[in-house]
Write a protein that binds this DNA or RNA. Structure first.
Lengths: 133, 133
DNA sequence: ATTGACCTTCCAGCTTCTGGAATCTTTATA
DNA sequence: TATAAAGATTCCAGAAGCTGGAAGGTCAAT
């Protein structure tokens, strides 16, 4: 099938498939006589794997490692799990960071009356000393 | 003071101060005869404002708007509050997205025994149909 | 005079695509 | 058969927000 079909079946856009090829995440596709890329079911499966992994927030680099592990019949599941756990830790870190931000923001907005008067605790605190969120 | 001092006092690195100037977030600094940028307490205050805003996750573009509001004595606090509330909504959206990711990831890793055997539900599910996190 | 800490500019790279231009191929229709 | 639309190709640029590094000028102290 052509790249458009592969895109539809995998959830990865044609543009992005070409991009993944260009950075070496996926191997170069074979070509038709006229130069169109050709894809098979196996390729679509790989693209779907990538799509799912990206949806779970794995970096493209991590996805590369996951693909290697996936293709390697002799991998230890511990290696996969370690990668996933480390990613979970990273996600947790981000959540915590965002949660702190939101708490501070909520605190600030609650103290701002939000009418047509100019005085605003939000701006005052942003200009002050003590914001570390 | 020179840019290094301004950086130390504001928490914004010299490199980043120059960057902010280059994109117009802050006005061009005045210069000494030899070309060094000069900063005063007011400038440091502005940089600190920016630093705090960035720490709270506001985009540089939003920070530009906040700076305008801050400098405009006639602004309505409602405008500031609206910006902040909209940002909170965005932060909440991101938190929710990350939480979904983490839940799926946690689910996956729990089902992976994580030893030296090769079979791994994480990879199997990534290759499957049903991941939407 | 020299050292070292600053400062300057400019260019490149990070991450992950996405949009767009110019051009070719394939397919369908009039 | 002519032609038009859909889909493919390559390449360049831009998005956000810095950060690193090179090559070089300046300032203060020794």
């Amino acid at each position: 099938m052509n790249i458009g079909q592969a895109a539809n079946h995998s959830g990865v856009s044609a543009k992005t498939i070409r991009y993944y090829e260009s950075i070496g995440l996926i191997p170069e596709a074979s070509r038709t006589e006229s130069g169109y890329r050709r894809y098979g079911d196996k390729d679509v499966e790989t693209l779907r794997f990538i799509h799912h992994s990206r949806n779970l927030g794995f970096s493209v680099k991590d996805v590369g490692m996951l693909l290697d592990l996936w293709r390697n019949q002799k991998r230890a599941s511990a290696d996969v799990k370690a990668l996933a756990l480390s990613h979970i830790a990273e996600v947790d870190r981000k959540i915590e960071e965002l949660r702190k931000m939101r708490d501070t923001l909520t605190h600030l907005t609650q103290r701002c009356h939000g009418d047509d008067r100019p005085d605003c605790p939000i701006l005052e605190e942003l200009a002050g000393e003590t914001i570390d969120a």
